[in-house]
Design a protein around this nucleic acid. Structure first.
Lengths: 241, 241
DNA sequence: TTTTGACCAAATAACGTTATTCGGTCACAT
DNA sequence: ATGTGACCGAATAACGTTATTTGGTCAAAA
């Protein structure tokens, strides 16, 4: 169904290399030469796919966000207790842990994004995260899957703090004194569960439905932003001048 | 009772200025000239009190840690619900928020500690924090003030993450989208409370007793470390050579 | 059409040198 | 005793210059 599958396949290969390099060295310290060399192509060829370095990074970022959402959705569909907030929280957390780029995005920020930040400008990544979780919790609450007396805004904020701390502290505390990851995760899950679970449990299926709808809309929003992120080169349009 | 109260008074004044400067500019970027000028004395006079820059910073650090512990203890004694873990957590949090130096220490920024880090060496500040909270939770659990089935090590870790995230995210998320501090604090307190509170509440007085004992031993340990921290100049001892 | 090496201007790293500052000491004044 | 200005060596900042790299373009080769 993809007319130029060869081209897109090549692009994916390049993006893989670029993602690894960006993750390791950050935006500023990763040169297009590095990317081209790692991908086994010439630097000029990169410009056939993305006309600016920003566009390349944007493509990596966009793809990672999309992959995260897709995986999240898949796991939730598969997981029997994916309909609860805590289960969802856990799945998101585990996926991030497995994706180095997303992990770096979450905890390091400034080094990974480097001077790409000014491109994102007012995009305000943490603000976005906060608002998204807020809205999400509110929807679950509306459906009776989250206790009615929960202050969703404050709770979203607290969960974000917890999330951030979990990711960040993991490389500040040596493994010897930190409990095993599974125990931490288990404990955090219990904490989240006790915090949001309503007195009588709601319908998990309803939860999954909300999450599906939510993930779908997230994907739509992402796709709508594709242009902004990737800024593809002139395909064959624009018979200008 | 202090034979040289004038001297110690002067030292406190110097420490005040030094603390403010260290908090604002960090260890490396704060010069002894700045401190001396701010304190209205000559730089040489500083050496009458502390023989190295490290010693000056150590004195500031030590004093801040001590003040924190003392205040903590006082508030807990005064607060009617100071005997619960959540209440204690709240008090510690609020005190830290009010002490810029401690706040900077927690948020950590290598900027504050700068090259003083190598002096602390294996002191491992986060490790210490983790172990302390662990032990503390365990004691409360033993006294029945924390539910018996709580994984204290993992919980201590999670609380540390939460704490860190709360302090750190506060300047990453603009005030417009963040809920009011009181609401956040309230929500976090509920979360902590639900996490650790045993089915039937224990005796608050017992909790306060444990905390008092704990704070007392912390003060003792601190006092024992005073030499290491402050490294006072040669008083009149050492009739050597 | 796709890929590439050569090319350009701007940004950045490297370098050596010069000033300045900084932590720390000491003889001297009070 | 207590405080201070002058002083020292080492570290750091400032500076200008030179090399190198980097993002981006283009005409030519495959």
């Amino acid at each position: 169904m993809d007319e130029n599958s060869g081209r897109s396949q090549a692009a994916q290969h390049i993006l893989n290399q670029a993602e690894a390099l960006f993750t390791r060295y950050g935006y500023d310290k990763t040169t297009l030469d590095d990317v081209a060399r790692a991908a086994g192509i010439s630097r000029s060829t990169l410009y056939q796919h993305w006309k600016k370095k920003e566009a390349l990074f944007g493509a990596v970022l966009w793809r990672a966000l999309r992959a995260f959402t897709v995986q999240w959705l898949a796991h939730i569909d598969a997981d029997p207790q994916g309909g609860t907030f805590a289960g969802m929280f856990r799945i998101a957390f585990e996926i991030i842990l497995k994706q180095p780029f997303m992990l770096a995005l979450y905890k390091n920020d400034m080094r990974l994004l480097g001077s790409y930040m000014q491109f994102l400008e007012g995009s305000q990544i943490y603000v976005q995260r906060q608002l998204t979780q807020q809205m999400f919790l509110a929807k679950l609450q509306q459906a009776g899957l989250v206790r009615a007396d929960l202050d969703v805004e404050a709770a979203a904020y607290a969960f974000n703090c917890l999330n951030y701390g979990l990711l960040k502290l993991s490389d500040m505390i040596p493994a010897e004194v930190a409990p095993a990851p599974e125990r931490i995760l288990e404990t955090v899950m219990v904490m989240v569960e006790r915090m949001v679970a309503p007195p009588q449990p709601g319908d998990p299926a309803a939860g999954q439905a909300i999450i599906r709808e939510f993930a779908a809309s997230a994907l739509e929003r992402l796709d709508a932003l594709e242009q902004m992120f990737k800024a593809t080169p002139q395909p064959q349009s624009q018979p200008q001048s």
